[in-house]
Each structure stands twice: as structure tokens, then as C-alpha cells.
């Protein structure tokens, strides 16, 4: 293991983040506040409680997940796409590092950034609602796992993308809808039965449900199924990355 190299990539990537710290900090705070105003205050005043939790509190886990998933994906995809785009990837390819060290460096940095955003949102949420976290360790574990797995997904997208449009395509076309339809702002049980069944094919449902369980101790689906889902998702991402490594897909001609 070339730990120096992993550290070098990580530090370099984090520097990009710290350069725009205000921006990295402000945009999640602002958007979270907006969500609270719109969903929590405006809509929440009409919805009393969901699963015995006030609506404003109920949406907190979904809100965090929404941001964390999109941030992790876009950070990681951009992180590896940019060197490809400007040509600095030559240095990664000619350095005495393995593909997995590259993955750890980039994915680690992207996941850290997403985690940071998640925590900022959580902190912001405390200003708006009274929150109690039932299972803090499980909460943190879910958060970290989500950051990691979606950063892996982002990394794959960044390798696959050949232009900026493609880079935006998956987050925009797949992740955002899945997250919105994944019960971020509602409980699955609030849907008509047919939709409840369809929703179960949405992998994000399991993540949000599990995460919400760690807050309130109630969930749409069994917590173990949630854990399994995130495990399978991470496994698939790792598998794709292994395949990329084996074939040199879109990195080494």
C-alpha cells in the first residue's frame, strides 16, 4: 500500500473543498432552511404527525440523505472526471499507485465532504426542530455508509462520463428522482397500496427508512433489510470498480 499517495490525493482533494469552504458550508445551510420553511412550516402545519413524529422532524433524515447522496455523487464524479478532462490524470496513471489506492483517495475525500455537509444540515435542523436521535451510533454508521457508497457510485460515473453533460446526467435523471420518490418527505405508508409496492423497487427507500429508524426508532421497512440494501448497493459499486480496474475502462487506452 502506498499510503503516502492515498494521503496526497486525499489532502489535495480536500484542499479544493477548503478553498470554497464558505460555499460548501453556505449552500447546504441555505437549502435546508428553505426546505424547512417550505415543507416544515407551510406543509407541515397541515400534516400533524407522521408515525408519531412531528412532520418537521420527520423530514430531517430524508433531507440529510437527499443532500448527502447528491453531494457524495457529484463530489466523487467531479473529482475523478476533472483530471480526465484537463489531462492531469497522466500523473495518476504514471505514479506507482494501484487503482484501489486512487479509489480510496478520491472516494475518501468525496465521502468526507458529503459527511461534512450531512452534519451541517443536521446542525441546522436543530435550529428549526426539536430532535432526538434514538440510535446515534446507527445514525452515524448509516450516514457514513451512505457517503461512502454514493461516493463510489460517483467515482464510477466520473470514470464513465466523457463530457460534462454525461457527468450531470445520472445525478439529475436517476438519483434526484429516486431520492424524492424514496420517502424523503413522506412515509411510504401514506401512499396508495399500488404505489407502495412500486416504491419497494427503489433502493433509496431502504436507505432513508433505515436512517430514519436511527432517529425515531420507526421505519417503513425492516432495519436489517435496510442494512442489507446498502450492503448490496456498496457491493455492486465495488464490483463495477473492480471491473473498471481489470479492463482499464475509459482510463487506460
Amino acid at each position: 500500500m502506498n499510503f503516502q499517495a492515498i494521503k496526497a490525493i486525499y489532502v489535495f482533494e480536500m484542499a479544493r473543498f477548503f478553498r470554497t469552504l464558505a460555499q460548501s458550508f453556505l449552500s447546504p445551510v441555505l437549502s435546508t432552511s428553505l426546505y424547512f420553511v417550505v415543507f416544515g412550516a407551510a406543509i407541515g402545519s397541515r400534516i400533524e404527525q407522521v408515525d408519531g413524529v412531528s412532520y418537521a422532524a420527520f423530514i430531517v433524515p430524508g433531507l440529510i440523505m437527499l443532500s448527502v447522496m447528491t453531494q457524495a455523487t457529484s463530489n466523487a464524479s467531479f473529482g475523478i472526471y476533472f483530471p480526465k478532462f484537463i489531462g492531469t490524470i497522466y500523473e495518476l496513471l504514471s505514479a506507482p499507485i494501484s487503482f484501489f489506492e486512487i479509489v480510496i483517495g478520491y472516494v475518501g475525500a468525496a465521502a468526507t465532504k458529503a459527511l461534512f455537509v450531512g452534519i451541517v444540515i443536521l446542525a441546522t435542523a436543530y435550529f428549526f426542530v426539536d430532535l432526538q436521535i434514538a440510535h446515534p451510533i446507527a445514525m452515524l454508521a448509516f450516514l457514513v455508509l451512505t457517503c461512502l457508497s454514493f461516493s463510489l457510485l460517483g467515482f464510477i460515473i466520473g470514470i464513465w462520463a466523457q463530457n460534462f453533460e454525461q457527468l450531470q446526467l445520472i445525478p439529475l435523471l436517476v438519483i434526484t428522482p429516486l431520492v424524492f420518490l424514496g420517502g424523503s418527505f413522506y412515509s411510504i405508508s401514506m401512499l396508495p397500496p399500488a404505489w407502495q409496492t412500486i416504491t419497494l423497487f427503489n433502493p433509496v427507500v431502504y436507505l432513508i427508512s433505515g436512517f430514519r429508524w436511527s432517529f425515531f426508532g420507526v421505519a417503513d421497512v425492516d432495519i436489517w433489510i435496510s442494512l442489507m440494501a446498502i450492503g448490496i448497493f456498496t457491493g455492486i459499486c465495488l464490483g463495477v470498480i473492480w471491473w473498471i480496474f481489470k479492463t482499464g475502462y475509459r482510463i487506460r487506452s
Binding site: A5, A8, I9, V11, A15, R19, I86, T88, E91, A95
Partner: peptide
């Protein structure tokens, strides 16, 4: 091996010092 590529491929927003340090790190030094 050290390589100076034909194309001027560099991170535009990065400081000179940092980009040089990155290279050293990537090579495990």
C-alpha cells in the same frame, strides 16, 4: 520514472507549491 508530458496538463486553480507536493506524495515519497 519522472515524466514531463507534451501537453501542459495542470490543475488551473491549484497553487504551484501544492501541485508539486502532490506529485511527490503520489510517488510515495
Amino acid at each position: 520514472i519522472g515524466l514531463v508530458p507534451q501537453e501542459l496538463s495542470l490543475e488551473p486553480f491549484e497553487k504551484v507549491m501544492n501541485t508539486v507536493k502532490l506529485s511527490r506524495g503520489l510517488f510515495g515519497k
